[in-house]
Design a protein around this nucleic acid. Structure first.
Lengths: 337, 337
DNA sequence: TTGAAAGCGCTAACAT
DNA sequence: ATGTTAGCGCTTTCAA
């Protein structure tokens, strides 16, 4: 079933079919109707390979995401998908594992599928100009920006929250409640990731309040699974049982940590307050509901696509910083001791 | 950057490049090495549109999923993706909204991308032969089967759990604990969906235990979001406050229901037991941890792909029924009253 | 073992 | 307003 079949069926040439398909103006209404009917009758669907081949670039935007199992990224992905569709583009998702490199994978995807743009959803913070040139098309980093890298501002776009400042804000909330012994659960303190930035925010919030950072209150999960967060909390508890508050870098970690605290007989929030960053849906329904700084997931996805489309159409690259909003749950209380 | 460039760079013809790319045997080792080097030097990546165009079918498997926001489906998707990659195929995901029709979308995708096979992840249970012929390639229903439809067994494949029997099992567990007033939370009782099947299992488990089905203990959420489940539980509680156990058709609903019960002062499991079906990760970490029948998500994804690939290669269609496994949480107790 | 050449289905420039 | 035709980059006969 090709354009040729449709052409024969409706008694016109294939160029006319093409014109109808692409909404070109110069087709007689009568002919257009006839062709449309033929397309319907034959259940004709254009071959996108042929279409992409002849236009040396497609209308396809690639999204490279490291692991769809992350519920936060999943919900951003959802809004990216909506936005791409609304903008009239097609999306192709490419999932990668923890070890794979999103830039290399993305660059390969661009060439292979002749993408017109690329979205990196949850990636490294330290790209170099050398590696990103290989991407060749406009790209935007979604949920993060090039904090540790050496990219020119004009070379990429990003939509992100200020991880340092937001973590600072979260910890400050704990301090304002009266907490002094505040533990933190994070991926790692020195991996050039979101964790490192948020760790800095944690440290500075403490220092600016005159509290010294105590390394034995810092626990690294070495991964983002709930299981690892649970185990890390157990390690933390084995070492220290006197902290009155806990800051976790993600909601998932927060939920797992609360469970570990609970199982160890530590009541949240009475014995220990907990605050996190993300604001995924399920953490509204945990008991107690998690207090968290909610990332604007929907705007994040929509703005990412808007900026990408703008850059594709010739506008300048830009970095857009979004703000979180406190979603009050039930995990905050003043310290008892 | 095309094969032509690589050909010129390495001083051979494009057919030779093609042979190297496709691992054809008759290429001199020396020439093969030269070509491979050229490909590396030039960072050449084949244009998949051109490749797909010439081979009238691609090595691409399409996955149509209704809403990635469903955490259960998301984790099945993850294993499908792994399995497809391991089998040497490429995956294209197509998300659809609640109102769209997966069969029509899938059929269109097949023609548009010349797919060699299709996976429907979470779809309707009532396909007719007339609509599925349009799919044209082998397809498998993942997480469900054609319980309400009229498809011949030879016309499709599926990998699923026995929703009726598993719901029966869940409710039986509650009955064995001594419960008699058992409420149920589901999407709808008559929508030809997973909810309807599980509702039947609920009814029969009660009847076989000599308990009459009480309609006022049946609450329909009319959707699968946590918010709707929460609100439905509130409606249920407003109507009845004497049930001692609750069966929910999904983990997400179960978590939301527990929250609603908790907020209404009903203690889980002391005042009310809860059991669900799915076994997603987060429900291990809620307080109390949800008792649930865990679906074999990983095997489900892998078996789906294995069967699809088999059918693509000429084997017969088949329906594979998997079993759940009880994951004991902390939401089951005998009734107090 | 290698090269030349004919399409795969489509778009767009050109011709009518 | 409509038809003819030259590719887009690749695979695959067929010839050498």
């Amino acid at each position: 079933m090709t354009m040729k079949d449709v052409a024969e069926y409706s008694g016109v040439s294939i160029s006319t079919i093409s014109r109808v398909l692409n909404n070109h103006p110069d087709v007689r209404e009568e002919v257009r109707a006839k062709v449309l009917k033929a397309i319907q009758d034959l259940h004709y669907v254009p071959n996108s390979s042929a279409r992409d081949l002849v236009k040396t670039q497609s209308d396809t935007i690639g999204v490279v995401v490291r692991g769809v199992e992350n519920p936060f990224l999943t919900s951003v992905l959802r809004s990216i998908e909506e936005a791409i569709r609304e903008a009239g583009y097609t999306m192709v998702i490419h999932q990668i594992g923890t070890e794979e490199d999103e830039v290399a994978e993305g660059a390969s995807l661009v060439r292979s599928k002749r993408l017109c743009g690329l979205i990196l959803l949850g990636g490294r913070f330290d790209y170099t100009p050398e590696e990103t040139v290989s991407i060749e098309v406009p790209f935007v980093c979604c949920t993060y920006t090039n904090s540790f890298g050496s990219l020119e501002k004009t070379a990429y776009s990003s939509v992100y929250i200020d991880d340092y400042a937001e973590a600072y804000k979260a910890v400050k909330l704990l301090i304002e409640k009266g907490h002094k012994k505040i533990a933190v659960l994070l991926g790692a303190t020195d991996d050039h990731s979101i964790s490192e930035l948020r760790y800095k925010g944690y440290c500075d919030a403490l220092r600016n309040a005159g509290i010294e950072v105590d390394k034995s209150l810092v626990e690294q999960t070495r991964g983002y699974s709930m299981k690892k967060a649970y185990n890390a909390t157990e390690r933390l508890l084995a070492r220290r049982n006197d902290f009155t508050a806990l800051f976790t870098v993600s909601d998932s970690m927060g939920i797992a940590a609360i469970k570990a605290l609970h199982n160890a007989g530590v009541k949240v929030p009475d014995d220990c307050s907990v605050i996190a960053i993300d604001g995924i849906e399920v953490s509204k329904y945990t008991i107690p509901a998690l207090t968290t700084l909610k990332q604007p997931r929907k705007p994040m996805g929509y703005e990412t696509v808007r900026i990408l489309v703008d850059v594709i159409k010739g506008k300048k690259n830009c970095q857009l910083r979004l703000k979180t909003e406190l979603r009050e749950g039930e995990t905050l209380a003043p310290p008892k001791r």
